[in-house]
Design a protein around this nucleic acid. Structure first.
Lengths: 108, 108
DNA sequence: ATAATATACTTAGCGTCACTAATTATATTG
DNA sequence: CAATATAATTAGTGACGCTAAGTATATTAT
């Protein structure tokens, strides 16, 4: 039902950075958001998403801070940095160019 | 200049199977064909392409036979099998569905 | 109260696969 | 005959999405 995991490689960072860019959010919410937007076709497990977030934070693409909501358990909120926005723009361009390339190969 | 290698994952098989489907061919020619069609953006090294071909042959998606051209060194020609054609059709669908998903996420 | 469930984050270890790099071999060209 | 182009093979590396298990708090059900 779901996609070959290899396909996710290279686009996961793009999607995560984009969603963080559209509004500060936290890990658990990102998995549901991606699942929702992809109509259940992309079902990220925690073991997949969190390492992506740590990588991005480690490279200063995003920053985090703990926050406890009125109800519920503490959450680690992420926001994108300037560096992250630049990277996002690059990744977006790269993705579109790549899709174009594959399209050309599949026509040839 | 070239794409992040992670992007190639998941689409390499698709592109290779497609090109073999459009006409019997051999490894070395595939790299130049893909480079040409992608305007140099996808530059497969032998160490990348040949293992793909061996995998595909091992799974009976393609078949090979040696053939010596009138001029030049012997080549290993590949042709697609019925099983390979079925797989190609699946991969093509999966790819298009995935691109759609990413598009939706990047809009959300 | 307490057990059960939902939310939320962490982390160790695995397998796949594109990569680098080196090797072998024949054919053609200078 | 050396140098280059063509063509295939293969050993080893690293990135990263995955499984799976764990920690911890909050809410709901019994």
């Amino acid at each position: 039902m779901s996609f070959d995991k290899e396909l996710l490689r290279g686009t996961l960072e793009l999607m995560v950075l984009h969603l963080i860019d559209t509004g500060d959010t936290y890990g658990y919410a990102l998995t549901s958001r991606i699942s929702e937007l992809s109509e259940g076709r992309i079902d990220l497990k925690e073991g997949t998403l969190y390492p992506v977030l740590y990588r991005l934070e480690n490279e200063s693409m995003i920053e985090s801070s703990w926050s406890t909501p009125e109800r519920g358990v503490p959450r680690k909120y992420y926001r994108i940095t300037e560096k992250g926005r630049a990277r996002l723009s690059e990744l977006r361009q790269e993705w579109h160019a790549f899709v174009e390339c594959v399209k050309r190969v599949l026509r040839g």
